[in-house]
Computed example of a mutant assay.
Amino acid sequence: MTTLENDYLRIDIQWKGAELASIYDKTTETEHLWQANPDVWPWHGPNLFPVVGGCLNNQIVVDGNRYPMERHGFARHSTFDLTDSSETVARFSLRANESTLAAYPYQFNYEIWYELEDRLLKVAYRVTNEDDQPIYFSVGAHPAFNVPFYPDETYEDYYLEFELDEPLERHLLSKEGFFTGETQAVHIHNRRLPLTQDLFAQDALVFKNLSSRQVTIRSINHDQIVSVSFLPFNYLGIWAKPGAPFVCIEPWLGCADTEGRLVDIREKEAIQRVDPGQLFEAAFIVGISPHDAQ
């Protein structure tokens, strides 16, 4: 476990998956990250690579060859190397190896950089192409935030506030987690989407065309907030296990497959490409603060 800390926040990161394990607000003595109860959902905030979501037949196709690929990819189960650390910075690396090559036939260096500054945590994904051909991949985040923040509140006291007042359209998923091609309007009022126990009865809310670049968890009772800013991420998932006391805000550059449409990795929706020797980078920011500190 690696710990970052300043006057406001303490951040714990596991080496397995380079996964966030704690976002603790020292000023309010509040843990904001879901603590991975295995009886409910056994993750805190997995990092998704080299795919986001499910792949048809649990496979990817590269140059006509099929490779086994589990939902959300193998990075969350992999042990990363800690390549740099200080009181407020930690950098982790996962390089191609015998195990990854059996599922994903590319040479790469996948890095996750955590940087703590005041009440903000920046999480950056960097993918370096170490192959002699273009590589194709997706990246994404899956952090789960505790809701409610405090024991005297309920889940229904909370809502998600979108940066912009815009029409929302979710892309529906099958029971197996693949896109069906159908969409459904999601109604919000004054940028607010109330959190309710049945909001995720039909699986995640997946948005592909948001103009908003920030979503904030707010309570009707106080000004303490958790915000997620995701400027370069064009897809967003919002999910919780129905009835569980958390909500996931998930910036993605990639998404699940569509039913009945198995394609080469080059043609996967929202796939990213990096040429030999080149670097890809995208970052999102988690903010923990009272409203007047924003």
Score class of each variant (00 low, 15 high):
residue 230 F to C: 06
residue 26 K to E: 08
residue 265 I to C: 00
residue 109 N to D: 12
residue 192 R to E: 11
residue 80 F to D: 03
residue 198 D to K: 11
residue 183 T to F: 12
residue 244 A to Q: 08
residue 190 N to K: 12
residue 11 I to N: 00
residue 122 K to N: 13
residue 79 T to M: 13
residue 201 A to Q: 14
residue 263 V to D: 06
residue 32 H to A: 00
residue 289 S to R: 14
residue 83 T to C: 15
residue 189 H to R: 13
residue 234 N to C: 06
residue 115 E to V: 00
residue 115 E to Y: 05
residue 224 Q to C: 02
residue 262 L to W: 10
residue 49 F to A: 06
residue 247 V to T: 07
residue 118 D to C: 09
residue 182 E to W: 07
residue 219 S to L: 04
residue 175 K to S: 10
residue 266 R to I: 00
residue 265 I to M: 03
residue 78 S to M: 12
residue 230 F to T: 02
residue 98 E to T: 14
residue 96 A to M: 05
residue 271 I to T: 06
residue 124 A to S: 15
residue 266 R to M: 02
residue 216 T to R: 15
residue 279 L to I: 14
residue 168 L to I: 03
residue 68 P to S: 04
residue 212 S to Y: 07
residue 177 G to S: 05
residue 43 W to H: 07
residue 17 G to T: 01
residue 25 D to H: 05
residue 226 V to Y: 06
residue 105 P to C: 06
residue 70 E to K: 12
residue 6 N to W: 04
residue 110 Y to F: 15
residue 174 S to R: 07
residue 247 V to D: 02
residue 145 F to H: 10
residue 74 F to C: 12
residue 222 H to R: 05
residue 183 T to A: 09
residue 6 N to R: 02
residue 265 I to W: 01
residue 106 Y to D: 00
residue 18 A to T: 00
residue 9 L to W: 07
residue 76 R to D: 01
residue 270 A to M: 13
residue 56 L to R: 09
residue 173 L to S: 02
residue 140 G to E: 10
residue 285 I to M: 11
residue 280 F to I: 11
residue 179 F to I: 03
residue 28 T to N: 10
residue 220 I to D: 06
